[in-house]
């Protein structure tokens, strides 16, 4: 039995899922080749890693400070870990040192595995150092204090913060800027976006973070899902337009549907 108040959510989720899966299936059958616009922020990761290699200083990577629970935190962490894999492979290829700081315990094992596999994929398994994945502390402020100390001691050349991030973003980005580090920031937490946009050299805003995994992998099926995501957004825009018109003519039908 459908839970009270969940009807409209279920309806729209179903519609969006149908659109997403349909686009993925079309691409799988070769109906079209999905293309998304260039995300210069992700292209800049190679620039960041190259800069760190030239300067002989390490990179700080933070796959967000959220874990794998929570409706909007887990997807950001997954996106952050995808970018971690890509960045690790670049670091392995160029011989750069990278510190990965972790706040939530369950992410540490995943991060270690991802980095190790990236080093193996780059053909440098012996260069992997498990001590580069550092579990700092579980609370926001103790994690912040630990990472600020690490940044200053190691004199980082690049700072990458992608994932679920809270108040620590402003402190990390300001500290990294003081050290002269180049920065990439990305989160879906709207309250941190202004800080990232203001302080980081490159920023991933909202859903650009979720497209990142597809972009760096260049996998057609993942890109198809991103194209499907944009189509869902068009559907949402159409719904907003219908809602505005309905409200203007005094019709409560759409509002009633949304409350179902």
């Amino acid at each position: 039995m459908l839970r009270s108040g969940a009807g409209s959510s279920f309806l729209f989720l179903t519609i969006f899922c149908v659109i997403l899966v349909a686009v993925v299936l079309l691409v799988r059958r070769g109906a079209f080749t999905p293309k998304i616009r260039r995300l210069s922020q992700l292209d800049a990761i190679a620039e960041l890693v190259g800069r760190a290699t030239e300067m002989g200083k390490p990179i700080h990577f933070m796959p967000g400070s959220g874990g794998l629970t929570g409706g909007d935190v887990a997807p950001q962490t997954i996106a952050g870990l995808s970018i971690l894999g890509y960045t690790s492979e670049l670091c392995a290829k160029y011989g750069s040192k990278m510190f990965v700081t972790i706040r939530v315990a369950e992410t540490q094992a995943l991060a270690r595995d991802i980095v190790q596999q990236a080093y193996m994929a780059a053909g440098k398994p012996e260069a992997f150092d498990p001590n580069q994945i550092i579990y700092v502390a579980p609370t926001s402020q103790s994690y912040t204090a630990g990472v600020l100390g690490l940044m200053n001691r190691e004199k980082i050349a690049a700072n990458i913060m992608v994932g679920a991030i809270w108040a620590e973003s402003i402190m990390f980005s300001e500290e990294a800027a003081t050290l002269g580090a180049m920065q990439l920031g990305g989160t879906a937490h709207t309250h941190q976006l202004p800080f990232m946009l203001a302080c980081c050299d490159y920023s991933l805003i909202g859903e650009e973070l979720f497209a990142a995994g597809a972009y760096v992998s260049k996998d057609p099926l993942q890109l198809a899902a991103v194209v499907g995501q944009d189509m869902c957004k068009l559907a949402a825009i159409a719904l907003i337009a219908i809602g505005v018109l309905a409200t203007l003519v005094g019709s409560p039908s759409l509002l009633d549907l949304l409350k179902w």
Binding site: I114, A214, C232
Partner: peptide, 30 residues
């Protein structure tokens, strides 16, 4: 506007993860 876009992005990454299309979090090239 940003929250609506993020919500749709969350659905997308959720579907990708559930269907096994998104495998970056498992490491390797997938």
């Amino acid at each position: 506007g940003i929250v609506i876009g993020i919500g749709i992005g969350v659905i997308s990454i959720g579907i990708r993860t559930l269907l096994g299309i998104e495998r970056g979090h498992l490491g390797g090239k997938g």
